[in-house]
Structures are given as structure tokens and as C-alpha cells.
Amino acid sequence: MLKLYLDPGHGGSDPGAIGNGLQEKNLNLDIALRIRDLLVNNYNDVSVRMSRTTDVTRSLNERTNDANAWGASFYLSIHINSFNGAASGYEDFVHASVSDTSQTARYQDILHEEIVKLNNLSDRGKKKADFHVLRESNMPAMLSENGFIDNGSDAAKMKDSNWRQRVAQGHVNGLVRAFGLTTKSDTHRVIVDGTQIGAFQDDQNVLDAVKKHLNSANRIIIEKVD
């Protein structure tokens, strides 16, 4: 059983990074909710608890204390980056004390690989830092920085709901690989121009996914998951 503590960074009185008409807190929440829905709707043996599901203020201590008390098996914090307008791309972090041969590092390797397959951002690499949520969580933890909100090219992608869905799917694909999750019965993958953009049990969700890409895609495949 994967007990995923899913943490959309910032929220409420803390907007996080701001740029190009966007607020980080809203993007973090949108992507995290998509990750949650993809996991609970399509995979067995997974339970998701979120630090917030709406635009509320929660301290860093409240987040890690909640995850620790729940007994999460993995902590995943979703963020958007900001620097000087010139920086761009994707990167993720585990705690500075983590060994490169640890279980946490293995999870980072897998998630990083799957996320960069789908996010259409430059790869800034796997990194380490002394962030609170990585240091104070009792379980393996990773924080992803999904583009730079103050970079025009990255921000244009963030405004596209299809892009945010792909980012969510990349995180899910990594979790599926890392924790050996199995799909529920009667699940269908939707593959657009060679890239899986979702896996759905509900037929209407399959049709909605196809409709979103019908006018822009060269090839759409609907494939039943065995």
C-alpha cells in the first residue's frame, strides 16, 4: 500500500512565486489535485492525503507533522520555481543528507525520469537541499519544481490545462514505477502522438481526453490496460 502525502506548496495568505499573471499556489494545487485523481481513480493499493485541497494557509510544521502522524510512506511536495526571468526548466530535490544509494534517491531517479518525459521543459537535474518538508518528514520525500513562473516560455505552458495534466501524469507514472502500483480493471490509456496523457476507468473521461487533443494531435490511441 502506498500512503502518499501530497503537498501543494504555499496557499492562502502565502501565494508563493508570482509572475506572468500567475500565482504559484494555484498551479501547485491544480497539479496536485490532478495527481490525486489519477492515482485514486486508476490504481490499486494507494491512499492519498493532501496538506490542502483548497486555497488555505498551512504552516510547514503543520504539513510535516500531519504527514508524520498519518504514517505516510512517501512525501511529495509540488512547487513552481522563480528566479530572474531568464532561468527555466524542471528540477527536483531530496534532502541534503540523503545518500545517492538510498531508497529516497532511487525514488527520485525514477520520478525524475518519468516527469521529464512529459513536461516539455529543459532538464535542470536532480538536486539536494535542506528544505523543511524534506528534513522534517519521517519518510522518503521529494520536492518537484515544475518550471519558472517568471519565465515567459515556461509560464505559457503553465497556463495550458493540458500541460498541467501531462505534468501530473508524469508524477503519477513515476509513482507507479517506484511503488509497483497496478491498474484497476477496465482502465484505458489515452496516448497522444506517442505520449500517454492519462489512464481512465470512466468512459467519459476517456472521451474528454480524446476531445481535448482531437484538433491538435496527429495520432490518438485508446488502449485497454490488461
Results as ranks from 00 to 15, higher is better:
Met1Asn: 04
Leu6Met: 05
Asp7Thr: 00
His10Gly: 00
Gly12Val: 15
Gly21Ala: 11
Glu24Tyr: 13
Leu27Met: 10
Asp30Ile: 04
Asp37Val: 08
Leu39Met: 11
Ser47Phe: 13
Ser51Val: 04
Thr57Phe: 12
Arg58Tyr: 14
Ser59Leu: 10
Asn61Pro: 06
Arg63Val: 06
Asn65Trp: 07
Gly71Gln: 04
Phe74Val: 10
Phe74Asn: 00
Phe83Cys: 00
Phe83Ser: 01
Asn84His: 12
Ala86Trp: 08
Ser88Thr: 04
Ser88Glu: 04
Tyr90His: 08
Phe93Asn: 00
Val94Trp: 00
Thr101Met: 12
Ser102Asp: 10
Gln103Thr: 14
Thr104Asn: 09
Thr104Ile: 04
Arg106Met: 15
Glu113Cys: 12
Glu114Lys: 13
Val116Asp: 02
Lys117Gln: 04
Lys117Pro: 12
Asn119His: 05
Asn120Asp: 15
Gly125Ser: 07
Gly125Cys: 12
Glu136Gly: 00
Ser137Ile: 04
Ile149Cys: 01
Gly152Lys: 15
Asp154Gln: 07
Ala156Arg: 15
Asn162Val: 06
Arg164Met: 13
Ala168Tyr: 08
Gly170Ser: 01
Val176Tyr: 15
Val176Glu: 02
Arg177Asp: 15
Arg177Phe: 13
Ala178Asn: 10
Phe179Tyr: 10
Gly180Pro: 07
Lys184Met: 06
Asp186Asn: 15
Asp186Lys: 14
Arg189Met: 12
Arg189Leu: 11
Ile191Gly: 01
Thr195Lys: 04
Gln196Lys: 14
Ala199Leu: 09
Phe200Trp: 01
Gln201Tyr: 04
Asp203Leu: 12
Asn215Glu: 03
Asn218His: 11
